[in-house]
Design a protein around this nucleic acid. Sequence first.
DNA 1: CACCGTGATAACCGAATGGTTAGGACCCGT
DNA 2: ACGGGTCCTAACCATTCGGTTATCACGGTG
Lengths: 315, 315
Amino acid sequence: MTLTQLGAFVLVARLGSVRAAADVLGVSEPAVSRAIAALRQHLGDQLLVRDGNGMALTEGGSRLFGIASQMVALGSDAEAAVRAAKGTPARLKLLVSSTIAEFIATPLLEAFGRRWQTSFDASSGVASVAEMRALLPNRLADVALGPDLRGDATSGLVSEPVLKYRIILVTGQDFRATGPPARWPWLVDSSGTDPDSDTGRLLRGFRVPESSIRVFPNQTAAWAAAADGLGVAPAVATLVGRQLRRGELRVLDTELTPAVACWYVTTLAPERRSPAARYLRNFLSTPEAMQLMCSPGTGVSPSRFRPPVYVTIWS
Amino acid sequence: MTLTQLGAFVLVARLGSVRAAADVLGVSEPAVSRAIAALRQHLGDQLLVRDGNGMALTEGGSRLFGIASQMVALGSDAEAAVRAAKGTPARLKLLVSSTIAEFIATPLLEAFGRRWQTSFDASSGVASVAEMRALLPNRLADVALGPDLRGDATSGLVSEPVLKYRIILVTGQDFRATGPPARWPWLVDSSGTDPDSDTGRLLRGFRVPESSIRVFPNQTAAWAAAADGLGVAPAVATLVGRQLRRGELRVLDTELTPAVACWYVTTLAPERRSPAARYLRNFLSTPEAMQLMCSPGTGVSPSRFRPPVYVTIWS
DNA sequence: CACCGTGATAACCGAATGGTTAGGACCCGT
DNA sequence: ACGGGTCCTAACCATTCGGTTATCACGGTG
């Protein structure tokens, strides 16, 4: 399986014709045909089948197409990326939990950028605990902010506490909690599906069945639903201060809440740490960063706003 | 540049040693060394330099590392993906605008799954208008739901209207609109940075300067800020019904709002359409789908909730 | 039916990839 | 300075890849 073979395959799939692909590539038609044949044999699937006056993808071919397109695109990116790196600021890649992504990551990186703009080019992406554990040792990211990732000494990861926070349970003024917590309607964001997150642990602690859980795309939405009296939602105390002051939400105490938890910053062991990771780790202990994590402003100006560079792959 | 060369490079970068990589690969050390040398020459960068008792990545090498890791991983995925495709339901890949992603995509796909679960395996991802235009013709996605993508006849895309909706402007009860709209504080979600989105067009229509725009991670958050009197926010009328009924928000009329707009479904031309795309397109005209788009339930049960398959790449 | 145009296959060939062993250059420790 | 580790390079060889031309098989279309 070669990149050129994959490139030929992608082109044929896109154009729906071997001949046309050969023309575009400027090679003879059998060359393309044989590239496809090699892939067919290697993968044990027809990939492309005759369809009247052209070629159609098989189901297997369609799976391959998405992957191969990515690979080909990455291949041509590689050269450009390496060349562009000369004399360019280093990149800082930050992984964050969903809560931090929603409220803290953007202002934090904005502030970090103001200080180090010339030297670092920072961006962030959401990841589950499992993903963080996989991405950091591989250097696919420099820093993770959120959960404690210790517990596997062999991974070479170092987690350090950054900020304590209180986890509380909030609900609307008119919600009446009846029965045990496991029977309440629970309103959570997508971190509820990550068993290693605060939310996941809380749900497990109360043995909440799946039928009592509703997952919202973000915490703001879950809290809005809670304010409507639809159920209870976990929250970080400092982040719902506004809604509590306005009386939209009230705190509900249980045997497990309020609870104290802690955000951690995780990097590789000091000697393997990237310079960018070093700087961000230090930045997190500055008063400015602390301030931002305690009461982040919501919303940023669009010139500062740059969504993380995601590439969507249906694998 | 070969996949095996990239694989060797990734392994060396990960282990910090040529020798160790050679051991893992079960080949001689010069074999690995020469793979690196070939990449070095091809890309014109040292990529890895001696660093005491091992190898460290140069800036260019670190850029390549992220890309190469992806490529290698995709390469090993490819085989599995093709083999797994045999006798497997077809995949439906849906691109949606951010508004639809936040409120509609999940229940819609959930309903679609209930009807066709055995035959289709549907998932969705957020994309900007530009991304949709790029991904659909390449068959990296089957269907786009949201903006009208016509206007470029050569692309082979077909957009059909699905549902009319009203764009309104909402604000808190105590917000006093003074001066021209361009001077108001505008609270938008990330689609405000997509010039082809409804929000982007509205902001351009009022010539709102960037300094007056605050970008929130999602619309629910922007509306919550508007309810706090922090400014005005665009909204789809049917989606803020709850907040309007509760009196948290009120409608603000302007020369450009209320405006009527329309969601479109976009696919390839009928003869190039995938079967999955055909089915979803038909499903969208059913009463069930219409109902969902007009008043989507918020939140889904976690067993139904499967986040889209994202792979984060810092390119 | 004969005639296109399409894709698959065969036979051949140059070039590169990827592997080996042997030896040189370098850093680091004692 | 020496030995032991590392990485780089050179010379050699088998294999595969990617290209060609020629030929066959198939499906519409006149």
